[in-house]
Design a protein around this nucleic acid. Structure first.
Lengths: 213, 213
DNA sequence: GCCTGTGAAGGATTTCACAGCC
DNA sequence: GGCTGTGAAATCCTTCACAGGC
């Protein structure tokens, strides 16, 4: 079922969903692929093609109903559920993630946090008591966790990812500045601001071949 | 010069550079595209093809010299320079960014910070005194800033991006959960953990069509 | 024998362009 | 007249496969 939808398409759906939510809040009831495309800097054809993988949601001559397309997308992506997240690493970065208010309203609940350092064990972060990382794998086997978030130093990240994978996790959000290996059936996304900057510098350099010297 | 190198290629170079740096630290002096590819889960052909856009860096029968390829890549990407960054928004997220130790060692120095709220103005974040956002554009015109980092709420992000663009900034790292418009000659990268999670849930859903209900 | 650099082939993704419907 | 849904075309990107050099 749902055979072979390109990953690029899946990655764009949340963007569409967010734009639709914002249109809905502004009171728009209908939107054309043209209008949505302008809002997102995407071609209308791409939007229509992407949506066509999942069904026929529009009306000719009219466009898409904002609310019902949003509902459809949320269903397709599983955004109509709550997802249980575990966070590994409660250093500065991990704490910032735990305290970040943006996940919860989107249905991502951090329900457990782990750290390898003994002095963290037992502390409370968010609503969670910090557990020792040695328990991570067994915890995962006994509790339904959907997503693992990795917020440990680069040198520890592969080991943590391995524990998550062995514990049965199939989706990982990685904040560590390295690319851990995962089996093909595990999804992993990287949050890596340094990498993002390092690719932009190429383009700055193109326009300023030498810094005014 | 350097006409038409695909953006996907540019985006991979920093990944290669990082892997090479790590090999160098381990004392490796030579690496084949095969070995590097295994480390990064990338095909050897892709690495060779990517590098071939920029020159011929390897030796047949031997591979690449780790140190000299790393130097080359750093040169190509402009990682052999310091880059001056300004941060806009010093709420929780902005402060976490300012205090994050990962940028500086890679040559990205936060040299100015801005916020629109009067009670922030004058405070010190990192080594910077917080300036009022109304001065952002004129500050950019008078000071050499390479990269703008946006860490404001979604509703304010487009306005901030416009100010950065009007101030002449050509590279933007956006942490706000929306996709601002930028002119074609401005590079923008998005750090958006919620979006990243929302695309992974699709795949979790595929394997668990209904939560054991 | 091993490994690079690269045209050519293959595959994936985007865009075009239009039939069909409101 | 406006707009969707979609095959077909065009473009972009990856992988193959091998000549050539170490």
């Amino acid at each position: 079922m749902t055979l072979e939808i390109p990953e690029v398409v899946i990655n764009r759906l949340p963007v569409y969903a967010r734009a639709l939510a914002s249109l809905a809040m502004e009171g728009e009831t209908v939107v054309s692929s043209q209008a949505l495309g302008e809002k997102l800097d995407v071609t209308p054809a791409q939007i229509r093609k992407d949506l066509s993988y999942f069904g026929r949601f529009g009306k000719q001559g009219r466009g898409y109903n904002v609310q019902s397309l949003l509902t459809k997308l949320r269903e397709i992506l599983g955004l109509d559920r709550k997802w249980r997240v575990c966070l590994v690493g409660v250093g500065r970065l991990g704490q910032a993630i735990a305290e970040y208010g943006g996940f919860e309203p989107q249905g991502f609940q951090i329900v457990a946090v782990f750290d390898s350092s003994p002095e963290m064990a037992g502390k409370t972060i968010g609503n969670c008591t910090v557990r020792d990382s040695v328990e991570l794998e067994s915890y995962l086997r006994q509790n339904a966790i959907d997503i693992g978030v990795v917020a440990v130093p680069a040198r520890a990240a592969q080991q943590v990812v391995d524990q998550l994978v062995n514990g049965g996790i199939k989706s990982i959000l990685n904040y560590a500045p390295m690319m851990p290996h995962v089996p093909r059936d595990v999804a992993i996304r990287h949050i890596d601001p340094v990498l993002a900057m390092q690719s932009m510098t190429f383009y700055i350099k193109q326009r300023d071949p030498l810094p005014a010297k």
